[in-house]
Nucleic acid binder design. Structure first.
Lengths: 393, 393
DNA sequence: GCGGTTTGTTGTGCCCGGCAACGTATTTCG
DNA sequence: CGAAATACGTTGCCGGGCACAACAAACCGC
C-alpha cells in the first residue's frame, strides 16, 4: 500500500530512464530521446544537463544525418570515466573485469580457481585482479560499484552465499570479505550467476524487449535466471530460480544438495560425463570433448548427449508450462548441450508443453557469450546508479 | 525503457493508493491515512474530497477515540453504491455475486453447471443471475465492472478461454459472450480462478503483506495463482501458473492435456477417487467422502490420501525450490487434501526442498474460504477502478 | 543567400505535494 | 464549568517538475 512517487522521485526516475537508455542503447540523439521517453525537448535538455554536470554523460557533435534541419546533439554515456568492477566466481575460474557505463568491458583478468577455495581465500585473489587493473584507470574516472556473480544461492538482503555445492561454499560472506580486502568505499552487490547473465541478456542481449524469460545456466550444476513481467524473480529470500533442484525422478540419483533425482543429476556435468563413460573427467573441457565425440559419431557419447537432451527438454517443458515465458535461453554448458541435442529438446517440449504455452516461446542461445555473467555482474552494480543517478554518481 | 510518471499520474496513483487502502482495510481515519501513505494532511484532504466528489468514498463522523484532541474524520468506501459483479465458472457450479467496494459480498446466486456446457450456453445463465440480482441494487449505485474467474487457461489480452479440460472448453470467448448477453457498458475482465483466488488472499486474506506466494487451487485439475515480488505472475500470454501440467512422472499416466504424468494425474480428483476404488464417482462431494472415509479408518481411502499427499508434497517442494515463496496456500480440493495428509506433505517437502527455501516458507489454508474465487473475480474488476479512480468511476 | 525544416533554449504557466499558520473539535485538569 | 492541551481540518503560499510556445540556431536544397 504505497503512495505514488513524489516530484523529486519523478526527476530521479526520468534521470534514470535517460541514463539507462544511453547505457543500454549507446549514444543517442536528444531528438530520439524525446520520442522514446515521451518527454518534452526542454525536459530532455534539463535532464542531460544534470547528468552531464554529474559527469555521467557527455554531449557530442551531431552525426551527419543527411536530412534537413538542425542536427540533434548526441548524448553519450561516459564509458571510460564511469565504470564498475565485475567479478564472476565460477567453479574452476575466477573472472574480473572493469566495465564501463554502456556495458563495454574495458579491462579484464582471469585466473584458475582451485576447487575448494573458500571465500576468504578467494577475496585476496579477486582484490589482486582489481589492483592489477587499477593503474590503467584514467585520471578522474569514478567507480560506481562492484558486482559479483556467484554460482550459488545468494541471500538477497546481504549477499551471503548460502549454498554453492559446485564450489563447496556454505554461508560464505564473499561480499564482506571482498569489502575488507578492497578497502574502497563503493557498494558491493552479490548475485547469482544465472540471474546476472539473465539480467544482461535481458538488457542488451537476445532477450532485449522480452518481459518474460528463463535463462538456463549450466556450470557443474544448473540454475536459472528468471525475469517475469520485466522484473527479476528473486523469491522471498533471494533464492528463486533454483531449477536445478527441481526433482524430475522421484527417489532418483542422489544429488549434492541432499535430495534425490534433481534435474541437475540428469543434465549436469557429472551426469553427462558419467553417461559418456568418462567417470574421472571434470570441467568444461571434458564436457566439450563429449560433445565433440558425439559430433564425430562416437556412439556412447551420442547416447549420453541424447539422453541428457531429452531430460533437458523435459525440464524446460515443465518450466514453460509454469512460467509461460516468451523466450528460453540456454547458457553456459546448457548452450552446448542444447545445440548438440536440439532435436530431443524440441521433441520433449512439444510432447509435454501445453500448446498455448508453446505458441510464442522461442529457444535461443546467449548473444553475450561467455561475458554474460561478467556484464550481468556489472549491471547489478550499475543498477544503483541507474535508480538514482545524481546521488549514486 | 519507460520514463517516470507525469504529474497527473502522481495524482492518479495517490488517489488509487488511498482508495485501495480503504477498499482493503475498511473505514480509516484521515490521520491514519496520512501516516500510512506518507502524505501531508492537506493532500489527504484534497484526495478524499476528489474521491468523495466521485461518489467513491464518504466521510463520516469520527469514532470515539478516548484520546485528547480533535477526532479525525473517517473515510469509508461506498460499499453499497459502488460495486462489481463477480462470476466464478467452476466445473459443476456457476456462482455469481454482487460485491461492494470494500470486498463485501452484497448478493449472490449459485447454480449447478451441467458438465459440457459451453460458454455461449453459460452466458445466458450468468446473465440471468445478474438480472435476478439487479432489482436489489439501490438507486444511484454504480457498477464499475464485471470479473469472471474460470478454471482454465485465459489469454491475458482478450480474456479468451484457451483451454479448460475440466469444463471441456476450448477457445471459448466467455467475455464476449457475456458482454453480448448483458448488454451493459462495463468492462469485463476474465481471469483464471487460481489467479483470482490468489489475488484475493493476497489482498485481504492469509497472505496479506506477503509479496511472494503460491496459491494452489484444486478443482478437477490443479492450477496455481502465483504472486512474485508483489505482482501477479501472468507469463507472456497470460497462461502462467499451470503447475498442474508440470510432469512429475516421465511417461506416466495419460493426462487430459495430451501429455503424460502431469502432477494433476497424481493429485487431481480422478486420481484420488480411482486410488480409493471409486472409479465412477466424481465431484467434490465424492472427494470429501474419501477424506471422510480416510478419517474414519478406511484403509484403502487412507492409502489413497497418503499417496496423493506424498505427490502433493513432491510438487510443492519443486515449486518452493523454483520460486522461494513466503507462503503456499492450499485452496479448493487441495485444502482438503493438504489437511488430510499434512504429514506426507511436510515430509516430502523437508526431504526435497532446499533448506534455504524452506527457512521462511509457511503452509496455509485460505482465509476467504469458498468465496476466494468470487472475491478475487471482483478484485479483478475493481483493479481498473483502483488504477484510475476518477476516470473509471 | 534564402526559405523550409528540425532542433536547442528560454520564459511562462499549470499542477502537485509540502509547509506553516490559523480555526476547530474534543479531552483533560483544575 | 472553563481554560489549557491536544490533535486535526482548512487555507494560502511555496518550490519543484514538466509541457508549451516563442525565439534562436544549425542544416538542407535551390
Amino acid at each position: 500500500m504505497r503512495a505514488g512517487p513524489s516530484q523529486d522521485e519523478i526527476r530521479r526516475q526520468n534521470l534514470g530512464a535517460l541514463l539507462r537508455y544511453v547505457h543500454v542503447h549507446g549514444a543517442t540523439t536528444r531528438a530520439e530521446l524525446t520520442t522514446v521517453l515521451g518527454l518534452n525537448r526542454s525536459t530532455i535538455g534539463a535532464l542531460t544537463a544534470d547528468l552531464a554536470g554529474a559527469g555521467l554523460v557527455s554531449e557530442g557533435t551531431p552525426r551527419e544525418t543527411g536530412r534537413a534541419g538542425r542536427p540533434s546533439l548526441v548524448v553519450r554515456p561516459e564509458a571510460e570515466r564511469v565504470y564498475a568492477y565485475a567479478y564472476s566466481v565460477e567453479v574452476d575460474r575466477l573472472r574480473a573485469a572493469r566495465v564501463g557505463l554502456g556495458g563495454a568491458v574495458l579491462d579484464r583478468r582471469e585466473l584458475d580457481r582451485p576447487r575448494n577455495l573458500l571465500a576468504e581465500e578467494a577475496a585476496p585473489l579477486l582484490a589482486g585482479a582489481l589492483k592489477e587493473m587499477h593503474p590503467a584507470v584514467p585520471a578522474g574516472a569514478v567507480c560506481v560499484g562492484v558486482g559479483v556473480a556467484v554460482c550459488g544461492m545468494v541471500r538477497r538482503d546481504d549477499g551471503l552465499v548460502r549454498l554453492s555445492p559446485p564450489t563447496g561454499w556454505v554461508d560464505e560472506p564473499i561480499g564482506a570479505a571482498l569489502a575488507a580486502e578492497l578497502g574502497i568505499d563503493v557498494p558491493i552487490t552479490v548475485g547469482n550467476v544465472a540471474d546476472a547473465a539473465a539480467f544482461a541478456e535481458h538488457a542488451r542481449g537476445v532477450a532485449a524487449g522480452c518481459e518474460n524469460i528463463i535463462y538456463l545456466y549450466g556450470d557443474v550444476g544448473v540454475g536459472a535466471g528468471i525475469i517475469a513481467g520485466g522484473r527479476r524473480l528473486t523469491g522471498h529470500g533471494g533464492y528463486g530460480g533454483e531449477v536445478g533442484h527441481m526433482v524430475v525422478v522421484r527417489d532418483g540419483t542422489r544429488c549434492e544438495c541432499g535430495s534425490r533425482g534433481c534435474w541437475e543429476t540428469e543434465i549436469g556435468e557429472h551426469a553427462l560425463l558419467r553417461a559418456a563413460g568418462r567417470h574421472d573427467a571434470r570441467g568444461r573441457d571434458a564436457l566439450l570433448a563429449v560433445f565433440d565425440a558425439a559430433g564425430r559419431g562416437d556412439a556412447r557419447a551420442q547416447t549420453a548427449v541424447r539422453q541428457a537432451g531429452d531430460w533437458l527438454g523435459f525440464g524446460v517443458a515443465n518450466l514453460v508450462n509454469i512460467f509461460n515465458p516468451e523466450m528460453v535461453i540456454f547458457g553456459g554448458t546448457m548452450r552446448d548441450l542444447y545445440l548438440a541435442s536440439a532435436a530431443q529438446v524440441r521433441s520433449r517440449l512439444n510432447s509435454i508443453g501445453l500448446s498455448a504455452c508453446l505458441e510464442h516461446v522461442r529457444l535461443r542461445t546467449p548473444k553475450l557469450g561467455a561475458d554474460a555473467a561478467l556484464v550481468g555482474a556489472a549491471e547489478l552494480a550499475f543498477e544503483r546508479l541507474l535508480a538514482d543517478p545524481l546521488d549514486a554518481g
